[in-house]
Structures are given as C-alpha cells and as structure tokens.
Simulated assay, not measured.
Amino acid sequence: MKRPLFVAFDGPKGTGKTTLLEAVTRALRADGRKVVRLCERKRDPNRGETMALVNALARNPSAQLEWKVCERLAESRAWISRQVLPNQPVDSIILIDRWYPSDAAFRRSVPFAEVLRLNIERQVQVPDVHVGVVTAPEISWARAAARTRGLGSTVIHRLEEQAASTAAFERAVAEHGWVLCRNEGTVEEATQQVVAAIYGVLGSSRQSLAS
C-alpha cells in the first residue's frame, strides 16, 4: 500500500474496544507488522471546548446543541486527518480508538446519516476497516460496573439507555457494512476475527495494485 491502512474501533461504552485494540496490536506486531495506535480524544486539539458542549448537552438536552457537538467533533477529525494521519509511516497499520462511527451509538436527536455527511463534507478520512465492537447491553453494563471509573459516560446513565445505544449502533453496522465483532467470548476469538478482516483488506489492496 502507498499509505497506512486505517482501522477504526467503534461502539458503545463498555464493550471492550480498548482491550481488543491492544490485543490486535500485539497480534499484528508479533506477525512483524508496524502498528501505530491512536486515540481520537487524545489527538483532538479542541477536546476541552467540545467536552464543555457535551456536558452542557447532558444538563440541557437539545437538538441544536447536539448538532454543535457533531460539528465540533467532525472539525477535530478533519484536523486529525490532515495533521496526524499523513505523518504516520506508509507501511504501517493505524489502529484508532473511536472515530466517527461511534457517533451512531451516542447521538440521540441527530441521525447518523447527518453525522456521516458532516464528516464527509469536511474530508474526514474514511477508515479502510470499520470495526464495530458490540456486546449484549447487559454484558457491557456489567463490565463497566466492574471498572473503577464505571461506564465513564456523560450521556448514558441507565441500562435502558445502554440498550438503546447498542441497538442504534448495531443498525448502523448493518446499514454501512462495517465489520461486526461481538466481543462476548474470549479476547482471543475477537482478536482473530479482527486480524482476519485486516488481512483481508490488505490482501485485496495488494491484488488491486498488482492488476
């Protein structure tokens, strides 16, 4: 490939995205691959201002404020797409913890189709592999409860909301043809599925270049 392979891990809270991303990183590196791990929130230059809007939205839900959050996130992703992603080694695999597909799990009044349009208009880089990590909401809720920080969500506070978030995300996965990874078994099983999907895209890219 003439540029890095870009892989996004997205989904509801507590589904094990970060743990899975770490396991996939180890598996790829063990196979001799150059892997770059990124986290959207840590690379977002406007994180503080955006989270202030998110907190205001949590206190006073409104479609107008949620739209502003979506715009700010899209603008930050556009900046990452211009300033961060092009600077990675061309022979690497970039794994990012959250990207715009995650909005499908958290947007309440803004349809994901509009979120997608915002990101495309701003030329946010489209992942080569979208990995949608899901579990039954009861499982992700229980996993989050076992963590020191809990669910760690500004907008989801009840199991019913977690269930709605999961259902919305699974619909988006089906509609957009993302890789659905049900992370309810062992990490090894989920890792094998994701690594196979990555190698499948890498293989297709090689064939395209050869032809």
Rank of each mutant, 00 (worst) to 15 (best):
88 Q>K: 13
92 S>C: 12
3 R>Y: 01
53 L>Q: 11
204 S>H: 14
90 V>S: 13
163 A>M: 05
66 E>A: 06
126 V>F: 02
8 A>P: 05
42 K>G: 07
51 M>G: 02
150 G>A: 07
42 K>H: 14
9 F>C: 01
122 R>W: 01
69 V>R: 03
83 Q>L: 06
142 A>P: 10
209 L>D: 11
71 E>L: 15
206 R>Y: 13
154 T>D: 15
46 N>P: 01
178 W>Y: 14
75 E>S: 09
115 V>E: 00
130 H>V: 13
40 E>F: 14
10 D>G: 09
52 A>E: 15
182 R>T: 06
56 A>S: 04
105 A>E: 00
190 A>Y: 08
25 T>C: 07
88 Q>R: 14
27 A>N: 08
173 V>E: 03
40 E>W: 11
150 G>E: 08
123 Q>A: 15
60 N>I: 04
179 V>C: 15
79 W>L: 08
20 L>V: 04
4 P>S: 00
24 V>Y: 02
193 Q>R: 01
174 A>Y: 03
29 R>M: 01
202 L>E: 15
12 P>M: 06
204 S>A: 15
76 S>E: 08
152 G>T: 11
207 Q>P: 01
199 Y>L: 04
14 G>I: 04
80 I>D: 08
12 P>L: 05
133 V>K: 13
72 R>I: 00
83 Q>I: 05
91 D>A: 06
93 I>V: 15
68 K>W: 13
14 G>E: 04
70 C>H: 14
20 L>R: 08
134 V>I: 09
76 S>Y: 10
66 E>D: 07
206 R>I: 11
129 V>Y: 13
